[in-house]
Simulated scan of single mutants.
Amino acid sequence: MNGGPALVSIMRQGSTLIASVHTALDDSELVRFEHDLVDQIGEHRSRGVIIDVAALDVIDSFAALTLRRIAEMARLRGALTVVVGIQPAVAFTMVQLGMGTGNVPTALDLEEGLQLLAEQALPAGPSRSSTAGDGSR
């Protein structure tokens, strides 16, 4: 984003992108992050996106809206998004202010986020064919 330390890192693990937000982002940085992440979804043909916000002690209404927008753009590009690491105080404040992540799935941490993505991928994956010939009907 600029010449200083990275505010966000985006790494690829298989068909999943993991975006870690390292510090609070202003509105223009959030928009830049949104564009960068959506571009990388197409570039890497990602099927899943995890946005890790564990380092944030505040998520304002614009940030919550941006997370929902990212998830919708990712969905339109064929990827499921999971937000992980929302701190307890942040969750409390978001609920008190009537903000939320909409229908964007959340998980406690990166491990649970990866597990959630794996579970979401099962219905379209090999499990359907593995049960088709098991003779149970």
Rank of each mutant, 00 (worst) to 15 (best):
R45A: 08
A64V: 12
M1V: 11
A54G: 11
L67Q: 04
A6D: 10
R69S: 10
A55V: 12
V104L: 01
Q120K: 10
L117H: 02
G14A: 05
D26W: 01
S136Q: 14
L25P: 00
I86K: 07
M94R: 07
E111V: 14
T66Q: 11
G42A: 10
G85N: 05
H22G: 00
R75V: 08
I50Q: 02
A55N: 08
G42H: 10
L7N: 03
V95F: 00
G4Y: 11
V104W: 05
S127M: 12
D27K: 11
G125N: 08
G48Q: 06
Q120S: 15
R45M: 07
M73Q: 11
P105N: 07
V8L: 08
D57V: 14
V53T: 10
S129K: 14
G113F: 07
R77E: 07
F62T: 09
A74I: 10
L7K: 15
M73I: 13
I51T: 08
H22P: 02
A132Y: 09
R68D: 03
M73E: 06
G4R: 13
I41D: 03
V53G: 10
G125F: 07
L117W: 02
D52K: 07
L76I: 13
P126C: 06
R68Y: 03
E43M: 09
A121H: 10
S130F: 12
E112K: 15
G135A: 14
N103T: 13
R32E: 03
T81N: 12
P88C: 11
F62A: 02
S129W: 07
A118P: 04
R137C: 13
A121Q: 01
S28T: 04
S9Y: 09
D36N: 13
A121G: 06
V95D: 05
P123G: 04
V8K: 01
V31H: 01
V84D: 05
I86F: 12
R68L: 01
Q96N: 13
M11W: 00
G100H: 05
V49A: 05
L97P: 06
A71D: 03
L108P: 13
T93L: 06
A71V: 06
V21D: 04
H35G: 07
T93C: 01
A24F: 04
H44M: 08
A55S: 15
D134R: 15
G14W: 05
L117C: 03
V83Q: 02
L76D: 10
G48L: 02
L65K: 11
G4A: 13
P5A: 09
A24K: 04
D26V: 09
L37F: 01
Q40D: 02
L7M: 08
I70K: 02
R137Q: 14
Q120Y: 08
A74W: 02
P105W: 03
A63F: 11
E29T: 06
L30G: 00
V84S: 05
L110R: 09
R77K: 14
E119K: 15
R75S: 15
I70Y: 02
N103A: 09
D57A: 15
R47W: 06
D52L: 04
L65G: 04
A124Q: 09
L114K: 08
A54L: 12
